[in-house]
Structure formats: structure tokens, C-alpha cells
Write a protein that binds this DNA or RNA. Structure first.
Length: 634
DNA sequence: GTAGGGTTAG
């Protein structure tokens, strides 16, 4: 009977004429037969075409077993239920009919079938049931369903229960609804340490560190002592505070309350100190840890990666393993970033191989950084390969791929990928638009860029000042200087130095002296410490022979204490880095290199390169002017 | 019932 019923569901779900009615019929059959055998095993052995079919049976199973009073079996099945929302819809493993079924069941709260059963009187609810339901909603991040359970609990005849309310607060914070969590917190007649910790954690995990930290003194005031959970969250919040002061204060309490040797608390301390560049303190806490784990190492490795200290990051990566710790996705993500920032592709390849060898899957978490590493190191082909091989792709994977194309001047590719991501339903964020706009700007795709800019509205992405900078850059590079000025005039926020900087570069490129001077002066007013705009402005003055203005700009730079950073080039051959600094003839093969450069430079000229020497005024001799442009000189 | 570590742009 059971087998026949399962066959019925299976064939119904794979048949073209499958409909909701057929499903209801099928479920009835399953309901009749399901208790006569081992349900889970049968589901497993039948090997359903998709998890949705299994879900349909699970719903039937819950219904049948609760009717028979087998609540434990119902709970067990419920914990495996994946019918909440659309988790399976997203990866395309559903048939169209199954999608309809999922949608229907959502509307008729089939995901919370069990609540209907309570209303019908088939099942008597208790705190345990509500807590299980809330936990499930929390795990799946289902706010709507969680709220339904919360409301159902309020309507029940059950008394106030601290444990359940803490669970509800946690459900709201994990689903990102801090306002409701705070409301419940405020209305509670009594709170314990878990209540406070749940709210502190909520603020800390949702990027509201100030509010998390503000709760700490209040908690102390009512006489509750924080535990290791509280401290871990407080330290995370301290890590994104404006100064290191909160972190130090919390550290004091950690010592006072005796949690210094807790591995969660100590790892958080390492991370917090590292975020304020207090590497000595971070290292000290780390060294004194009696027990370490992967997270302790990752906190330190992430610090070196952020600082661009690739060598140190790699050293720690090998050391953690020699001390018996296995790298995690966090570790790989940091190490790849470290390799990307030091452009040590060879080392990065080693670590990549290491990850493959240790059986690590290529998931977006670490894969995104690996993709970025290859793109930054110059191998767009490898970056693309990584993208194709990713087990899962999130918006960052797409952004990184777009950036890769933009960095390699492949604007068309970037635009195509962008269209593709929209087509398959990946929601672009503000960074996505920056990536695709930058690609268009660098590739001269003005119309496409303007179109994508307008598209931001459709995706509810509010233009940030950086988007305006990119738009000015897009128009400016293409020589549409008046249009670029219109953007600046019409933007709803005050132009920043970056905005004027973009216009300045465009004017320099297209030789609009008057506008360039205006933009340059505005840019320098707003950010006097960047040497770049001073140099461009000076060059613009030079190009029209306004030598006294050149002198004035140079004098102003000296007064501010600015020096133009010398131009530096690197060439890597084998394991040796050859560094060339402006005005530096120190390389042992200097003579040979210059001879070779002469030949290359001749070829470039033959290919049609015309050096722009207009701003190199100090030398009257044309040959000397050209030479100034071709090698590093100040 | 409450906890810590990662990535994309500029």
C-alpha cells in the first residue's frame, strides 16, 4: 500500500499533467499507507526526483501521525520539513508544478500546518512545541512564519514564560527585526541574563554596535553578571566601534569576571585588538591562550590579510597547521586576500592546491577571494575558471567576476555577465552597479553605462556618491564634459573631492583648461592632502604656459608638505623581484635595460604612438621632452 | 534560549 502510494506521488510529480488536485489525491494515498511502513527509509529508497516531493509526503506524514497521537514522530518529520518558503525553488530543482504547490502551501500556511492542527484541536500545544517551531523559523530565517508562531503563542492560554520569550527575541534578531525584539524586551515583566545577551547579540550581529554596547552598563546596573556569550558579542560590537576604548573596557570586565581563558572570549579579544591595529595586544592575548581553536588563528590571519602583510599571513597559515589546526573557509578567504594584495600568485596557487588536496569544496565563501586573487594577479582566464567551478554563487561572486573583467578592460564581457546575472534572478547590490558602471566607463560604453545607471531605480539601489563619481567619469572620459557638469549640478548631495577629481581627470584628458582648473581647485580645497590632483592641475597650467600658476601649485604642495610619490614599477622574473624607482639607475643591468627600452620605444612609435609632451615645459628640446614621458622621472 | 573568524567597489 505504502509503496503504491509513494509510486503514485512520484509519478504524479514527474508527469506533465501533474496538478494540485493530483497531488491532493496522492497525499491521501500516502496518508493511508504511510503508517504501515518505515516512512523515512521508503522516501529515501524511492529516490524522489526532488526534495519537494519528499516534502509533500512529510506534510502528509505530520498530519497522519498527529491524528494518531504520535507527536514525537510528527516533530521528527517536522524538523526535516523544508516546505517553509522557497529554499528549493531558488536552485531550480523544482518542477513548475512543484513550485505552484510550494506557493500554494505558503499561502495556506502549509509550512505551518501544525498551527492548523492546533486550531482544529488535533494537537495540544505546550511550551516545547512553540519553542521547536520558533527554533525552526529562526534556523530558516523565516520572519513571517516566526511572527505567526509568536502571535499564536500569545493567543494560547499558556502563561508568561521567560524561556519562550527569550527564544522569540532571538527569532526576531536572527531574522533581522531588531525593532520587534526590542519591543518584546521592553514589555517583559522580568528579564534574565540570556534576555539581555540575546538583544546585545542581535544589535552586534546586525551592524548596530553602539546600541549593543549601550546595553552593557544598563545590564550591570540591574545586577546581572555577563557570561561568555555576552562578552563574545560585546567584543564583536567593540571591534566596529569608533575607538578601541569600549574594547579595552570590556576586556577589563572579562578579566574581572574570570572569562579570560574562554576560547570564544579570547578569540574575540584577539580580533577586537587586531581591528584597531593593536597587534601587540592581539598577539599577547593569542599567545597566552591555554586553548586555541581555528577561530583564534583565523582572527590573527585575517588581520595580516587586511593589512596586506601577505608574508605574515602565509607564515601563520603554515604555522596553524603545524600546531594541528585545520584551515577553514575563513582561513582560505583571508590567505587568498593576502596573496591578492601582495600579488604573490605563486604562493596563492600553492594554497589553492592545498585547499583542493585537503578536500575543501570551492564554495563562494573562499572561492570569491580566490577568483579575485587570480583576476588581480592578471589571469582573467583562471578567474573565469574559478567562477565557473564555484559550487554556489552569491552576489559577491558576480561582483568579483565583473570587477575582474573591468580590470582587464573587457567591458563587453562585464556588461554581458551583468545582464546574465539579472536574467537568472541574482539581485544586484550597490557594489554590482559600481562594478558594471566602472567597466562601462573604462571601456567607453557610454550608452550602456547610462542605461545601467537608470536601472538602479528598478532594483531599489539608492545612488551613493561613488555612483555619481562613476557617472561623471563615464561621461568625462568620453569627452562629454558638459553632460558631466550637469550631473554634478543636478546631484542631490554636495560634490566631494572625488567628484571634482573625476571631472579634473576628464578635463586633463580632453584638454579643457578652464573647466579643469575650476575642478582642480575645488578638488584640492576639499582634500588638500592628495598629491594627484595637484600634479594634474600643475600640468594643466603648464600646458597653457601659465608658469606662475605652476609655481604657485608647486609651492602650495611644498607648504602642505606634499611630495609626489615616486613612480615605481615591479618586474618579477622567477623568484626575483626587480624594482625600478623614478630617477634610479641602481639596477645592475641598467645599461642593457635602457638599450632594450630604446628598441621597444622605437617600435611603439612605429605603431603610431604620439607622445603628448604639451605639459613637459621645462625642457625645450623635443627629444628630451619625449624621454621624460617614457621612463620614470619625477 | 544567548557567542567569536571571510570576500566584491573606491
Amino acid at each position: 500500500m505504502l509503496i503504491r502510494a509513494l509510486q503514485y506521488v512520484q509519478s504524479a510529480s514527474s508527469s506533465r499533467s501533474f496538478s494540485s488536485n493530483a497531488l491532493v489525491e496522492a497525499i491521501k494515498h500516502v496518508e493511508i499507507g504511510i503508517l504501515s511502513g518505515n516512512y523515512q527509509e521508503h522516501i529515501h529508497r524511492r529516490g524522489f526526483s526532488s526534495p519537494c516531493a519528499g516534502n509533500m509526503c512529510t506534510v502528509a506524514f505530520i498530519s497522519t501521525s498527529t491524528k494518531k497521537g504520535l507527536t514525537t514522530s510528527a516533530f521528527e518529520a517536522f524538523s526535516k520539513l523544508e516546505i517553509f518558503g522557497d529554499s528549493k525553488e531558488g536552485n531550480g530543482s523544482c518542477t513548475i508544478q512543484e513550485k505552484d504547490y510550494l506557493r500554494e502551501s505558503q499561502n495556506s500556511k502549509a509550512g505551518l500546518y501544525i498551527l492548523d492542527l492546533i486550531d482544529q484541536g488535533s494537537i495540544k500545544p505546550g511550551y516545547t512545541l512553540y519553542n521547536k517551531l520558533l527554533k525552526k523559523c529562526t534556523q530558516l530565517g523565516k520572519l513571517r512564519e516566526g511572527r505567526m508562531v509568536h502571535e499564536h503563542f500569545l493567543k494560547s492560554k499558556l502563561n508568561f514564560d521567560l524561556f519562550t520569550l527569550n527564544t522569540i527575541i532571538n527569532m526576531y534578531t536572527k531574522c533581522g527585526n531588531l525593532d520587534d525584539a526590542k519591543k518584546i524586551f521592553d514589555e517583559m515583566p522580568c528579564r534574565d541574563m540570556v534576555t539581555w545577551t540575546a538583544l546585545i547579540t542581535g544589535y552586534s550581529q546586525n551592524g548596530r554596535p553602539e546600541e549593543a554596547l549601550a546595553l552593557f552598563p544598563q545590564m550591570i546596573k540591574v545586577g546581572l553578571e555577563p557570561n561568555q556569550f555576552t562578552f563574545a558579542s560585546l567584543l564583536k560590537a567593540s571591534g566596529s566601534a569608533a575607538t578601541d576604548k569600549p574594547g579595552r573596557q570590556v576586556h577589563g570586565f572579562v578579566v574581572k569576571c574570570g572569562y579570560s581563558s574562554d576560547v570564544y572570549v579570547a578569540s574575540s579579544l584577539v580580533d577586537t585588538y587586531a581591528r584597531f591595529d593593536r597587534i601587540k595586544e592581539a598577539q599577547l592575548v593569542f599567545d597566552r591562550m591555554l586553548r586555541k581553536n581555528e577561530v583564534s588563528w583565523n582572527a590573527l590571519i585575517a588581520f595580516y590579510a587586511r593589512k596586506g602583510e601577505g608574508g605574515d599571513a602565509l607564515k601563520m597559515f603554515w604555522r596553524m597547521q603545524s600546531e594541528g589546526f585545520k584551515p577553514t573557509h575563513f582561513t582560505y578567504a583571508s590567505v587568498f586576500k593576502a596573496c591578492a594584495s601582495t600579488e604573490s600568485l605563486e604562493q596563492g596557487k600553492w594554497v589553492h592546491a592545498h585547499m583542493l588536496k585537503s578536500g575543501g569544496k570551492l564554495i563562494a565563501f573562499a572561492g570569491n577571494t580566490l577568483l579575485d586573487m587570480y583576476a588581480k594577479a592578471g589571469s582573467i582566464e583562471d578567474a573565469r575558471k574559478i567562477f565557473d567551478r564555484l559550487e554556489n554563487r552569491d552576489v559577491v561572486s558576480w561582483n568579483s567576476m565583473l570587477t575582474g573583467f573591468a580590470q582587464h578592460g573587457q567591458a563587453r564581457e562585464a556588461a554581458e555577465r551583468f545582464e546574465e546575472m539579472l536574467k537568472i534572478g541574482v539581485l544586484p547590490n550597490f557594489i554590482t552597479f559600481l562594478c558594471v558602471l566602472t567597466a562601462c566607463s573604462h571601456g567607453g560604453l557610454v550608452n550602456e553605462g547610462l542605461y545601467y545607471y537608470e536601472l538602479m531605480k528598478k532594483y531599489n539601489v539608492e545612488p551613493h556618491v561613488d555612483h555619481y563619481v562613476t557617472k561623471v567619469d563615464l561621461l568625462g572620459r568620453a569627452g562629454l564634459l558638459n553632460e558631466a557638469v550637469d550631473v554634478i549640478k543636478e546631484m542631490p548631495i554636495e560634490p566631494t573631492s572625488a567628484i571634482w577629481g573625476a571631472l579634473l581627470s576628464a578635463c586633463s584628458m580632453h584638454k579643457n583648461t578652464e573647466l579643469g582648473i575650476f575642478a582642480g581647485e575645488r578638488c584640492i580645497e576639499l582634500n588638500p592632502t592628495d598629491s594627484g590632483p595637484h600634479m594634474i592641475l600643475s600640468n594643466i597650467y603648464a600646458s597653457v604656459g601659465r608658469l606662475s600658476d605652476v609655481a604657485r601649485v608647486r609651492k602650495r604642495m611644498r607648504e602642505i608638505g606634499l611630495k609626489k610619490e615616486p613612480g615605481i614599477s615591479w618586474v618579477k622574473t622567477g623568484n626575483t623581484d626587480h624594482v625600478f624607482v623614478a630617477n634610479d639607475d641602481a639596477h645592475p643591468l641598467n645599461v642593457e635595460i635602457r638599450k632594450m627600452w630604446g628598441k621597444v620605444s622605437e617600435k611603439i612609435k612605429q605603431a603610431g604612438y604620439v607622445p603628448d609632451t604639451s605639459h613637459v615645459l621645462v625642457f625645450t628640446d623635443q627629444q628630451e621632452r619625449e624621454a621624460r614621458l617614457q621612463v620614470h622621472r619625477s
